[in-house]
Write a protein that binds this DNA or RNA. Structure first.
Lengths: 264, 264
DNA sequence: GGGACGTTACACTGGCTAGTGTAAGGACGC
DNA sequence: GCGTCCTTACACTAGCCAGTGTAACGTCCC
């Protein structure tokens, strides 16, 4: 896992990655590739097999860890011969990296849906934020398979090629944090919140709710009582609102801060 | 790592663990053991060898991960024959668990010293908190070896015997969080802070400073610019003070909260 | 029919690993 | 000097695993 990897082209999903990383050469849809005519990413093998392998790999890596998962296990889980796996992926490592990139995008999308459901229309700010944060913070328990992968990534971070790690963060956690910042900005526009920097506010919300639960549950590895989650989330939202709710007497959407608000 | 382990007696440092877990049977100093006369924990082998093994194990596990570290590597690093390791520890697993319990206690102690240095005498609240949090949040980079272990623990959490995991949390992170809560209480007594629950306040401080940095750096796996750390820490302390600093006009050490302060 | 391609079962290599067995030597106490 | 304990070097078992080679089979398209 430690070898230098200069490009991400080896891994799937390059189209979803920042174009800087893909060098604009390989593009899933694109005609504008700067090379000859390579309109479509070419994969060997049948797509359904590839999908089965990816799904199985995610599950087995999640349960067993990177080193604990053998390619034979993954093959069995996928209902596919081991040889076929090596027909689709060059390496166990490449399979792993490819899988984590897929997973992060997928989960970020799921989280975005959760945010959509709770934050698109704000009726009662605190209530809606709590409902959102509850579902969000419960997702590690719900998507146990994915977050087992997240834990592996965290522990292997030093051994994962930096470009891949960067791409993973950018399609996954950071993508969603941007989305969250967007929602918070909307609320600020309506005068429901006050802050200078939406990204900082989103980070604080993340820390005070999601991370506070994730921290305690080891990102879903340990089961928490629902009451504990609720307590943490409610406390976190209250703290967040204490930080960013407009002063009772202040004009709505005040341009600056009278008290020393959290700033970057 | 998944086998049921009913007692912690197999592992070192039982004397430092909560007595519930040691069943009061084995006690480093104790004469009051409920069994015959087992006044001293009996270790086979010479203590200096044991220490060399433990130190080497910590280093190698940290660099290579649990599965990546072979017992031969550890033996070589310790300057000891492999046979000697198996003379001191029954298992690779027992060696690992023993090592993480030692490490957590040691780091909690180091963190306590950092807190002592910065928080025993408060001159300027914000300044002192920032100085403390900076050093604290930088420790994952400083004690790379230990926090590599922490990352492994987090990723293996589901496979570590719950009793050991509990003991690890209790001698490590939680022990220090209690210490931090104690310091915050002192500040509250002096009217510098206002809160209902010191433990919640300590958790929020932890989240807003230490975790915020740890999150971004993958617990020390990724190097961060010092300016980034500083920025995160200062923002975190500002947010914390915004949450828990007494209202400008309020009487010092007010018993209750007028605004909706963060509560449990 | 025939070629190209993907898949499969299976055997196999080479390498690494946890853990053991053993005989020999060193240190220490008596 | 003698016994006990600890350590060491080394060989060894038994097993797992990544990755390859190969021959056979099916399918789809021409």
């Amino acid at each position: 896992m430690g070898e230098a990897v200069s490009a991400l082209e080896k891994y799937d999903l390059t189209a979803r990655l920042p174009s800087v990383l893909t060098h604009g050469v390989i593009c899933r849809e694109g005609r504008m590739a700067s090379q000859d005519s390579v309109p479509q990413r070419v994969y060997r093998g049948q797509p359904d097999k590839r999908r089965a392998i990816a799904r199985a790999a995610r599950a087995v890596f999640g349960q067993q860890g990177y080193t604990g998962a053998s390619v034979d296990m993954i093959a069995a889980e996928a209902g596919v011969s081991k040889r076929t796996i090596y027909n689709h992926y060059t390496d166990k490592e490449q399979l792993f990296l490819s899988v984590i990139l897929e997973g992060s995008a997928e989960v970020a999308e799921t989280h975005t849906q959760i945010a959509d459901r709770h934050l698109r229309k704000i009726l009662d700010l605190e209530e809606d934020l709590v409902a959102f944060a509850l579902e969000w913070a419960s997702s590690p328990a719900a998507f146990a398979g994915h977050f087992a992968l997240v834990r592996i990534i965290q522990s292997e971070a030093a051994r994962i090629p930096p470009a891949v790690l960067e791409a993973w963060q950018d399609t996954g956690p950071r993508a969603f944090q941007r989305e969250l910042a967007r929602y918070l900005s909307q609320m600020a526009d309506r005068g429901l919140l006050v802050f200078e920097d939406a990204d900082t506010a989103a980070m604080h919300f993340n820390l005070l709710t999601f991370v506070s639960v994730a921290q305690r549950s080891f990102y879903g590895a340990i089961m928490l009582h629902e009451s504990d989650i609720t307590e943490l989330v409610i406390g976190g939202v209250k703290a967040f609102l204490c930080l960013y709710r407009p002063e009772p007497g202040a004009r709505s959407a005040s341009p600056s801060t009278s008290r020393g608000r959290a700033s970057r």
